[in-house]
Write a protein that binds this DNA or RNA. Structure first.
Length: 886
RNA sequence: GGGAUUGUAGCUCAGCUGGGAUGAGCGUUCGCCUCACACGCGAGAGGUCACGGGUUCGAGCCCCGUCAAUCCCACCA
């Protein structure tokens, strides 16, 4: 026999060659085709600073599986790729690089810096694309976009202007999160919280005109330099008489009023709070309510400024230490307590965020968010798994206005212009010629850029051409499903949701499929700082992309974190090898034969059995994929291919190929092998695109079948037909399988050498069971290493020395004569009896329960009765066998 | 302070919105280089489905509580 495939599956060399072929043939490309139904996914754009990590690998594998599945199903499947400019991350990286070169952003100036940034993007921005290609993903590279390309920048400006004109974007002085290291504002979503062990400093201020002091506790003593009041609860009897008086602020010698405000909790500490309106969000509100003075005591790098008197120039921490020391000397420090509390830190650089009052641009969220909330509530957008709705609503319910301006250079510059003469603001795509207010002609554009998520929020429609009404937008929007991690729900998913409703009047996607995080073998998050990340490219290099892909989506469910285990990659690789070798076997046997579809009558029971299994697999796998249950589907493919097809059917088919000499039987077997293989490859293709393509192309050549498409990825998804439902044959083959298992078990327990051929007599009173064994006796013999197979309707003539196996459908006798140790045989049967006793007890228990009989559905009761009958029969048989062992 | 998730075989996890846990991989035991595959084949052992209540004819699955682990959110100084 000729060997069309190498002996072992080896992904090396195969994958790049195949990917190039796909690209060359433009199989990934989607067009507007009115005769087909669209299916579309937008790829979460990786950062241009990014390097492929396991998260990307998982995310993109899932999308690719869905896209390939839908493409094969006949949808016009668009997978829209692209990259994100990642404003702050990229800028930070470039600044680092500049520092290495001994220069800086300031030295280059804005224009010079941006030139550098674009050059950087050209150099590094494509790396991730080439890495993604190694995964085999089939996105439409011809359509790739970049958040700062011309069209998308236009969309950003359009949105900004629309929202501004609507009054939903405004500029104002508010308390914002300020990162002193990155020197920019950040949004609430970018603030992480970290528990820090610190102290609670108890301090007292003298009350002017009395000999009393007001004692309070603070976690940030240094902010006292900006105190403009001390507050108590209006109901607090301890301090009622002091409200309206003033305290003397140490160091600053400033008189600050004692005010009453409900915000103060009487139960906490002494019931007194110092108020620093410029440096604390709560105090900011109190300050506004009471018309307090707002004194900013900090520079942008979080050192104390001139408003901090002689502490000016110190860092936050230095100032804290000096102030505490001096208060102690002055006798104003009462005590220091240990205290642990949550501190806001910047998610990029982990610097403690400083709440500051700044003039910034904000998006008003109150109305904008509404459709995004109701959209999810009424399932216009479906979240998978549904529990993600709680996370989603937790954010929308507490949403605050979105601070969108960043004091950075790399990004979309805010389309707002200020009249140099009168300060009038003009928002528009172009710089205005003349100030509408004062007529002056000089304008300066706002120096800030937009939050990077401002542009990604528009991704589902901006990539399709919006604000132009392109045919693509018309056809592919709303997109079908968004695949992403739950960690990005606040940053991105919600913002796409409200942007879609606001600008398109429609949801951006029908469903969001969430996946979890990938953790290392010790269940830790993979992170740069821990250095425990596993490089997907290393895995691909070692095991192949197919193995990695299969491993990533098998055995886990939406939204759940998963652990990365090498064992599992290996198992996936072994599966690829299994498929490879099964194909190799089939192709070796196909050799030279022309395959034609057999007459129904020529199909044997075992053929019908596997076809019926295939039918069920196709039906279920298709349903699972349609419900986005990727892990369940892959498990079913694995089980079908390995267990049903390889371990059973291929073994059952061998004697027909090798020894029968019956041409009709052989040709039916070959056709069935080919048919099941072809469909299996298709079912597996979305998961393991490379190995399936390689086998498919070889198979196609082997078959010389021109009607098969030249690539499996453009072939059609198997449509299960109930022509392949064969109840009777399935029953008979299952009866044979039970017998085979039972006999093999017996052989092992009785220590019958694997090479020893045995004679068996199958006794069954069921004529169709007898018929099945009769018909399949050659296969049966082959599976059990049998020699002579006899079929009988009763036990007459069975020799006493025989070992027996009792199955539901038959009793099988194996005369082992000299080999049989009767006490062993008895022990074996007793074990079987014990098992049956347990089953009988359970079954009896249920069926003697009046309530079960009156309330359970009839079908359930019947099912249970049938089981009982079968157990009783087997029990009688086993008991009889035991008796005969004497 | 709120909320979520997880707790199933030695390990890592599935378990289709209640109906026998023949669940998967790895590991383990026994036997096999059987002409597709040792990245393999056959046969086993191994689980009071965290604990305590409840609903139900029936609960791994639903409800309540407890414990443990993980994570998210939050402006109590």
């Amino acid at each position: 026999m000729k060997e069309p495939l190498a002996k072992a599956y080896d992904p090396h060399g195969m994958e790049d060659r195949i990917y190039d072929k796909w690209l060359k043939n433009k199989y990934f490309h989607a067009e507007v085709r009115k005769d087909k139904k669209p299916f579309s996914i937008v790829m979460p754009p990786p950062n241009i600073t990014g390097k492929l990590h396991m998260g990307h690998a998982l995310d993109n594998t899932m999308q690719d599986i869905l896209i390939r599945f839908k493409r094969m199903q006949g949808y016009e499947a668009l997978w829209q790729p692209g990259t994100d400019h990642a404003s702050i991350s990229t800028e930070v990286k470039i600044i680092e690089k500049l520092k290495e070169e001994g220069t800086s952003k300031e030295e280059l100036g804005r224009e010079g810096f941006l030139r550098r940034a674009w050059a950087w993007k050209d150099e590094y921005g494509g790396i991730i694309e080439s890495q993604l290609k190694k995964l085999g993903i089939s996105c439409d590279w011809d359509r790739k976009r970049f958040t700062m390309d011309e069209g998308l920048s236009d969309a950003v400006n359009e949105v900004f202007i629309r929202l501004y004109e609507k009054g939903w974007i405004y500029k104002g002085a508010k308390m914002v999160n300020w990162c002193p290291v990155c020197q920019t504002t950040i949004s609430d979503a970018e603030v992480e919280h970290e528990t820090q062990n610190s102290h609670l400093w108890h301090i007292k201020y003298p009350v002017i005109g009395t000999d009393r002091f007001l004692e309070f506790a603070t976690t940030r003593p240094e902010t006292m330099l900006g105190d403009t009041a001390v507050a108590v609860n209006p109901e607090d009897d301890r301090y009622k008489d002091l409200v309206g008086k003033s305290c003397m602020l140490p160091f600053m010698n400033r008189e600050i009023p004692i005010i009453a405000d409900e915000y103060v909790d009487m139960e906490f500490g002494t019931g007194v709070v110092k108020i620093t309106p410029s440096h604390d969000p709560n105090d900011f509100e109190v300050g506004k309510r009471h018309n307090l003075e707002f004194i900013n005591i900090m520079n942008d790098d979080a050192t104390i400024n001139e408003n901090g008197g002689r502490f000016a120039g110190l860092t936050r921490m230095e100032a804290r230490k000096r102030i505490v020391d001096e208060l102690r000397e002055m006798g104003l420090l009462v005590k220091i307590e240990d205290y642990s509390h949550e501190v806001g830190i910047h998610d990029r650089c982990h610097t403690t965020v400083e709440p500051l009052v700044k003039q910034q641009w904000f998006v008003k969220m109150e109305d904008l968010i509404k459709p995004a909330v109701s959209g999810v509530k009424n399932k216009d957008i479906k979240l998978i798994p549904p529990r993600m709705e709680k996370l989603y609503f937790n954010w929308t319910d507490h949403i605050r206005d979105w601070c969108i301006s960043r004091q950075l250079w790399w990004g979309h510059r805010i389309p707002a212009y200020y009249c140099d003469a009168c300060g009038e603001i003009a928002v528009g795509k172009e710089k205005p010629d003349k100030c509408p207010k004062c007529g002056a002609e000089k304008f300066t554009q706002d120096p800030d850029v937009l939050d990077t998520w401002f542009s990604s929020a528009l991704w589902p429609f901006s990539t399709l051409g919006w604000p132009k009404r392109t045919p693509e937008l018309e056809y592919f929007y709303p997109t079908s499903v968004l695949v992403t991690g739950y960690d990005i729900i606040f940053f991105w998913v919600i913002r796409m949701a409200f942007s879609g409703y606001e600008h398109m009047g429609e949801r951006p996607f029908d469903a969001v499929l969430f996946h979890g995080l990938i953790r290392d073998e010790k269940n830790r998050k993979m992170s740069k700082s821990l250095g425990n990340g596993i490089d997907p490219l290393d895995i691909i290099d070692k095991y192949g992309a197919d193995a990695l892909r299969f491993m990533l989506v098998t055995g886990n469910s939406p939204g759940n974190d998963m652990r990365f285990l090498y064992d599992r990659v290996e198992a996936a690789r072994n599966f690829a090898n299994k498929v490879w070798n099964a194909s190799r076997f089939i192709m070796m046997n196909l050799d030279g034969h022309s395959i034609t579809k057999p007459e129904a009558a020529d199909l044997e029971d075992t053929d019908k059995w596997i076809l019926n299994k295939l039918f069920l697999a196709e039906k279920e796998i298709t349903e699972n994929l349609e419900k986005y249950e990727l892990g369940v589907a892959s498990q079913k493919i694995y089980d079908f291919v390995w267990d049903s097809f390889c371990d059973w059917y291929i073994e059952m088919v061998k004697p027909r190929l090798y020894q029968s000499g019956d041409e009709n039987s052989q040709s039916a077997a070959l056709w069935t092998l080919k048919t099941v293989l072809l469909d299996s490859l298709k079912l597996l293709h979305p998961y393991m695109p490379f190995v399936t393509e390689e086998i498919y192309c070889n198979l196609r050549q082997e078959l010389a079948d021109e009607s098969l498409p030249e690539s499996i990825m453009i072939s059609s998804w198997p449509i299960p037909t109930d022509q392949w439902v064969f109840e009777k044959e399935v029953f008979m083959v299952e009866a044979m399988k039970n017998a085979v298992r039972s006999i093999r078990n017996m052989r092992n327990e009785m220590n019958v050498a694997a090479s020893k051929r045995i004679d068996v007599t199958v006794v069954s009173e069921n004529p169709s069971v007898r018929e099945a064994f009769e018909k399949e006796s050659m296969i049966f013999a082959s599976l059990i290493s049998g020699d002579k197979i006899e079929i009988a309707s009763d036990k007459t003539g069975i020799s006493d020395g025989a070992v027996s196996c009792v199955t539901q459908d038959a009793t099988i006798f194996v005369p082992l004569n000299e080999l049989v140790d009767l006490s062993e045989e008895k022990k074996r049967l007793e074990k079987e009896k014990a098992r049956l006793e347990k089953e009988l007890a359970r079954s009896h228990g249920m069926l003697s329960n009046e309530k079960f009989l009156s309330k359970a559905p009839a079908s359930k009761i019947q099912e249970e009765k049938d089981k009982l009958a079968s157990y009783e029969k087997m029990m009688a048989e086993v008991e009889e066998r035991i008796r005969s062992c004497k």
